[in-house]
Design a protein around this nucleic acid. Structure first.
Lengths: 222, 222
DNA sequence: CCCTATTTTATATGATTTGTCAAGGAATCG
DNA sequence: CGATTCCTTGACAAATCATATAAAATAGGG
């Protein structure tokens, strides 16, 4: 999933420079040129990180950060031309995550952005989500969404689907599926598996990617 | 509450210097001189932050950090004499929170330590008050208020609700709830979980957000 | 030591899921 | 092309699970 970054910066040249470097590294960027616009954008969207200039028209970076923090914990990196500002950031206890003084090296910027995003994900325990087509599976919540709407999967159906998805591309014999989902020593008919597969295919509808491998089992293809 | 810091550093002179400065600023410090000892200490105690030297006898700082991260998310600041190490830290994706090169100014050290501790507290949501809808939970007092009025939760009910709230969005199997609330080795029927859930739902009334996940457990949704 | 509040166990009931079966359809092979 | 084997589909019955309620056991306070 592509990470989204908000650049709040009134100097267009600098903003575009930052954007170019970040996009080269696989990030998706939006630019806001005024503090107020930046705050609005940050509150409305779920950015993964915000690059925040301090001197801004409308509302300065300090105020943007402090207002943002009332609602959200999106990581913020402050950018400033004046090294004096650094002390101010520390002093204000704004919940800034980092700060850099201009001019900065693009590599340094990208490295810090990456570091902060990965740290934030680690600490905030973000959910693991598997996507294919219009389907997303939230493995922590054990929920399946198709085109944004939740599809009600039962326990066995969910386990079975997840196993196939996690082994995507591989053909899984029905006997293996039975062992894995129903347990090693479970007794019962193999046809149980096929019936469940059928029910899963129904629920996935157009997004069904479970192929039958004749005489063997099933394969989930991406 | 005094914040506790672990210093893992084999050079006694440096370790004591760090300790002195941090204690002057109101921190409580422990020192470990070997990587293995440091890891043990970090796992056994709940430090608020760890200062980790890279070159250590026994087990180097990289390994300590990576082993620690399997269990805990305590903030780590790496210290190194060699600036080469910085690139290595970035490259390894160890979940380091910061790094400083020796020699460093004591004020810089203290400032960074403070910044990281406050960020960690902010992100890890050690909130004293948790709110959802008309419900607020005061975790210090272990009290639950609905629409401003206190709802009398018993000990087990409170623990159970808090666990679900802290894992909001995730489906928690009943067995896990039983382990977490009643203790690992507790014997007893899983149905005691369901009875307690029922009572909590009763007390939450309209504000109940505990969903049943059939065949698995429960999920608290925001 | 007794009384009360809390927690656990037990049971009944209703809802949902799951497994089985049988009929029909599709793929495979000679 | 026909026979055979395997897969799909739908229906139904059995098993499982969740909830409500009540009763029994336990712990805590005076």
């Amino acid at each position: 999933m592509m990470k989204k970054i908000l650049i709040v910066e009134d100097d267009t040249a600098i903003a575009e420079l930052e954007r170019d470097y970040l996009e080269l590294n696989g990030f998706e960027c939006s630019i806001a040129e005024r503090g107020t616009k930046g705050l609005e954008a940050a509150l409305e969207n779920d950015y993964d990180l915000i690059l925040l200039d301090i001197m801004l028209p409308g509302m300065d970076g300090f105020e943007v950060c402090s207002k943002l923090r009332e609602k959200k914990q999106t990581p913020v990196i402050f950018l400033s031309a004046k090294s004096d500002d650094i002390d101010k950031i520390r002093g204000l206890g704004l919940g800034a995550d980092d700060y850099m003084t201009k001019p900065f090296s693009p590599n340094e910027l990208v490295a810090r952005v990456k570091a902060h995003i990965s740290r934030y994900e680690r600490l905030s325990g973000q959910d693991e989500i598997i996507n294919f087509g219009k389907v997303s599976i939230n493995t922590d919540a054990r929920r399946v969404f198709i085109d944004g709407k939740e599809a009600p999967f039962t326990a066995k159906e969910y386990d079975l689907l997840l196993y196939l998805v996690k082994n995507k591309g591989k053909t899984v014999p029905k006997e293996v599926l039975f062992d894995k989902i129903w347990g090693f020593e479970a007794i019962g008919d193999i046809s149980t598996v096929t019936v469940h597969i059928q029910r899963i295919r129904d629920k996935l509808g157009d997004e069904n990617r479970i192929q039958t491998v004749w005489g063997v089992g099933y394969r989930f293809t991406m």
